[in-house]
Structure formats: structure tokens, C-alpha cells
Design a protein around this nucleic acid. Sequence first.
RNA 1: GGCGGGGUAGCUCAGCCGGUCAGAGCGCAAGAUUCAUAACCUUGAGGUCGGGAGUUCGAGCCUCCCCCCCGCUACCA
Length: 712
Amino acid sequence: MKTFYVTTPIYYVNREPHLGSLYTTIVADCLTRHKRQRGHETFFLTGTDEHGINIQRIAEREGITPREHADRIATQFKKMFRMFHLDTEHGGYDIFMRTTERFHYEGVSELWRRAARNRSPKGRENIYKGFYEGWFCASCAAYKTEDEYRKAEEEGQPPLCLEHNIPLDRVSEESYFFRLSDYSETLLELFERPGFIRPESRRNEVISFVKSGLQDLSVSRLKTSVSWAIPVPDDESHTIYLWIDALSNYITAIGFGNQERERVAGFEKFWPAVHLVGKDILRFHAVYWPAFLIAAGLEPPRVVYAHGMLLDGEGRKMSKTLGNTIDLDVLHKHFQTDAVRYFCLREVVFGQDAKFSYEALIDRANSDLASGLGNLSSRTLTMINRYCGGQVPSALINEEKYLAAKRAGVDPDPQALASALEHARDQFIIFFDDFAFSRAIETAWGVVARVDKMLSNAKPWELVKTEEQHQTLHAVLYRAAEALRWLCVLLYPVMPEATARIYEQLGLQGSPAQLNPGSLRWGELPEGTRIGEVKALFPRIDKAKTMSEIEKANEQAGGTHATEADAVAGAEAKSETKPEPPMRGATEAEAVPGAESVEGVTQFIEITDFAKIDLRVGQVLTAERVPKSDKLLRFTIDLGEETPRQVLAGIAEYYEPEKMVGRKLVVVANLKPRKLRGFESQGMILAASIGEEGRPVIATFTEDVPNGARLK
RNA sequence: GGCGGGGUAGCUCAGCCGGUCAGAGCGCAAGAUUCAUAACCUUGAGGUCGGGAGUUCGAGCCUCCCCCCCGCUACCA
């Protein structure tokens, strides 16, 4: 039996569940159900990523243990998935993976050991300790090996990063490294596999990233700095950093490195997987992860599919600060699960960003589901009830009635309709295999339109009036009912509940889940079947009313949040109040280079260290953009010295040069001068770095200060 | 700045190698109809296919230039 293994990212427990995680999980669920119908043995993984310094900190702030915090968030995820019927009981995921499980520890250790035992493609150690030669590039957020930096021209100066051409810092923390730099060729070869990275445009991005040169990856932290993590095998003093820990969940969950899970799922049986990931974490899954696997002598994933982000109705990122998020409780309260699923799969072109708004959802639900599929089902079944005594009628039109049928505009031969359905069926499957869910669904809706038209043309309500046309009437209604049956089978993965209900209303036993869409044959709807009670599947949603209810709920929620925020004013902002991309799933949450990596090496300094930094008050005399640079502004600044300094700063995207003139600010006065875009910068302007994109906000004084005054 | 992807009806988008390609769905309007969840069916939108130039018998679809948007990436001491 063929197997199919699909994963969502494991969601990082630094924030509560949000629409993004729901979306990815819905897609995975849909894929799984479709494959199951097609006769594959499937395994569907989702879960949470629970280690790391961030979780340690959050827990500290909450006054609980990291484990308790992780439990809390994991529970919320499970609850959310249950709410939207994505849990095991509803036929959803097979495992809710947690990286704090014991079997995961075992599997991760095994992966590490195997990688460490093997040699890289260039015959070197895969994992090595890189502590004595700890040249760290702040921009790369990575350590540099000898062939990745250039010696400084002067004796005694730090070497320069080849990529950034900036001096490297000597960092004392020791760390294990993964020899990623030896894997470029191997990876580029892997990317040639058709469909390995999708969509195609993303594949190109990854290729150009790899071609630009890979650096070795720091894969451990000192236990003294990150204790909430899996220990490095055979080295008590280190813990395994994000990458290997989080990514390897995809194999430990199905039994790599542990008997317990192997029995339940089966690594040999299910690996390799199809990974569904947000586009923001594609690199980790398409580059690092395959490299780890290859290093350990394992097969890389089958597919890494990067999907897009869900944006608000205006196309902006969703964020709590903007107040444009979709509240999952609200969503659940006002919409059927199947309507949400339908919207996610039909409105969104899988792989691309999409707008997600309550209004659009209501429109889709009303036009496609209520007026479309729901109405077709309703009119068909009602007519069978009324004209055929509630039993699926005969499909047969005797030869002597052919003429009558034709007179009524009905083809005595159902072949045309049957062929159309077969074609739609084949297209549907092709689209599904290509992850083109929206196209597949469009195809199904072509069938809905066709059957609607057939009914309108044949006018069963007229046929019923003439005895001679009763066979025609029955045949037409049979055809409609049979088409409905096909639609149930095709659309089951998209809307498991609604299709099951139509199926039931058709009087059929069992569930469309058990039928293979590829095996649909015309005419297998048994005649004489007593149909069930006809009920509206998708009640029409009153848009105005629903929207005003939602808005009211939002206002209340907004008010509550504000109060809470006030109550903890002064406390650090919680991570979930920061504007973050909605799709930021777990496996990557920590994986923002520069964030955690830098934190990992932050150490206390002595007051004497601080005294080395000469901070001065400066006043901007002139300011202008640096030609051919997006970000650089060139200033001359009066530091109370004889001649003003020339200083460059990368703030052009956020500050108008004209408005900077005359401003007082803080300058690092004894920074080693450096050339940028041909201009020497003789200092550095201090600014706060805000939010995801690091928007600079320049440090200023509220009182008057003389130029050149020293800060200490 | 480099690389990549886009800019087509009010909205969301199809349009493969250039010649029924000027389209679909939604929304909107009119008509028809009553089996159905004010639904279904028919018809209509006269949109410079981002702007300009060119190649061609003929160009959303090819070439060049320009404008705008998005993604990746450099610079941001």
C-alpha cells in the first residue's frame, strides 16, 4: 500500500494559536483525507516546538516552569484544532507532536550521533566544535571558519567577514557546528528534483541563496545560557540549538531513533514526508533540514511546499497592534468549520499570499456554498421527495419515450453529462496532486453549474405534469442526484462534514471518505434508495448582521486588551502583542537569525568595558542621501570638535534628511572609521531598533544639551 | 543596488510556444422562471490588457526603455 506523510510546521509555543497555524493545518488535513480516499495509508503530523531561551524567558516572567508554559500553549493548540475538527477524533492529525516528548529526545540524540559519525560530502567531520577560533560575524549571526574570512590588513586587527566586509568579533562561547558549507553541491543537486521545492519561484530563491555560499551552522549552545533544550549527546555542557531539535521532529514522531513511535507509526514506512511550511521558514526546511538528513545518511523530504501568508482585507499583514487579526473564537462562532475550510482552499491560491476577511468569507459562503452547492442539493432532493415519492428514481428512458424526452430538451442518453463528470473528476485529481486546491474546487463548481443548468432546461416541474414525460423527469432527477454523489466524493476532503450530510440525505450508507474519487463510475447510485430528511446545508449568512456582531465583539475584545495592557504597563511587552507575521509557525519562531543567535552570546560586561565606549552628544549640520544607496544617509555632525564629523547611518528608509538637520543625537565617537559606499563614516548614530523589520528610532534628549557632552 | 515574480473588466484573477485572447467567477443591471437557501437560468459590462517605442502580415502574449507593486538578497559602524 502506498503511504503518504504530511507535516505542518510544529508551532512555537511563544504565542497563542492564530489563523496561520489553523490555515496550514487545514490544508494538511485536506490533503491527508484526499490521499486516504485514494487508498494511501496516511500519516499527518502537527504539533508544537517547545524549547529555547525564549520559552525559558516567558516562563520566568510568568513565574512558572518552561514545561508548564509549554503545556499551557500546547493545550490551547489542541483545543483550537478540536474546535475546527482537525484532531484525531474528527479524522484529523495522527500525532500532536511535542518536542518535549521523551522519544523526541532519543531520536534527536540519535540523529546527532549519526551525523557526527558520518563525514560530509567533502570528507570532513559533519559536526565539530568551534570554540577557539570563534570569529563571529554579527551580520551573518554566524561563526566564520578560516576560509570564510579575510585577514585584516593591519597586524592585530580582527579579520573581516568575506560577505559583509566587516570586522568579526571574537566570541568566547564554544559551540558545535554543522558543516553546512560542505553541502552546497549536494543540495543544489537535490533541488533539481522536480517538485522538491514548490512553488517554482520559491525554488529559485533557495537556489540563489545556496549559490551565494553557505556558512557552517552553529548547532549548540552552552547549557549555562540555554538550559531548556535537549542535551548534546556525550557533552553535558552543551544543549542542542533550535535547528536540529525542532526540524527533526518530523522523523522522531514517526519512530526514528525510538521503538515506541516506530511501532505506532513507522519511520521506514512513512518517510520521506511532504512538508507544508510558511514561505518565511522555507529556507530552514529546504536547506538546513535536508543537509542534516543527508549528513545522518537519511533521505531528504519528498516535497517542501512553501505557502503564502494570509493578509487582511486590505492586503496588510495581520497584527494585534493593527487590530486586523482574525479571532479564532469569532471565526468559530460565526462560521461552519466547512465554510472556513472551503474558503482557505478555494479563495487562496495555494502558495500565494491571500486576503482573508470576514466579508470575503461571508461572500464565498453565501454565493458558492448556499446558492451553489447547498441550493443544488436542496432543489434536487426536494424534487425527488415531491415527484418521486422520496426514492431515487430510475435513470432509464425507454426507446419509445426518446422522442418525448427530446421534445423536452433532454438527451435520452446520459453520456454527455457522464463524460463531463468524468473529465471533471480527472481534472480534480490532477489539480489535487499538484496542490492546486483552488483549481480543483473550481472544476467541481463547474459541475454544479452544469447540473443547475440541466435542471433549469429540463424543467422537472413541467415534466411532472405530463404522464408521458415521467421517465424523462425521473432520468433528469437521477442524473442530478448522481452528480451530487460524485461531488460528495470529490469534495469530501474539502468539506468532510457537509459532504457527509449530503451523502446521508441522498440516502446512502457509509461515508464519501471511504470512496476513491478515481474510481467513480457513472450510474452507481442505486435506484430506489430512500432519501433522508432534506435540510439546508449552508444557511445563508446575513452579512450586515454578522458583520455588526463581529465588530461589536472586536470592540469589546479591544477594550479588554487595552485594560490588560495598562495593568501591566512597564512590564515587558509580551511576544504576542508584537506585530508578527501571521504565518510565523513554530519551527522558525526562534529561527530569526540575529535575534536568538545574538542573544546567545550576550554576556555581562565590566564597567571598564563600557568606559571604552565614547558616547557624545552631536548635532546634525548637514544630511543627505548617499547616491545609489537605499538605506544610507550621510551626515556631518558637530561633536564640539574643531571639525565636524562625517557619519553614515542606515536610516534613509525611515528619516528624511531635510528633517534631520539641527537635531541633537547620540554618537559613538570612538568607533573605528570605516568606508561605506565610498564615504568614510567616523562614528555611529544610536537608535532603537523596533519590531520585525528593525525600524530605527533615533535616541534624543528632551532637555537641551551642549554638543560634545559625554554620556556615561 | 543585484536577482526573481507581477501590473488584464468595480473586486479576485485565467490567458501554453504571438493570429476566435479580449475571458471566468463575484458584485451590479435587465429579462425569464418558480423545484430550490430572494436561489437557479438567459443577457449585458463596451476594460487604451501599467506607460512609451520597436519587431511582425498580425502582440496582454516577443524586444528595448520607463513607472509602480511584491519576494529574495547587499549596504544599514
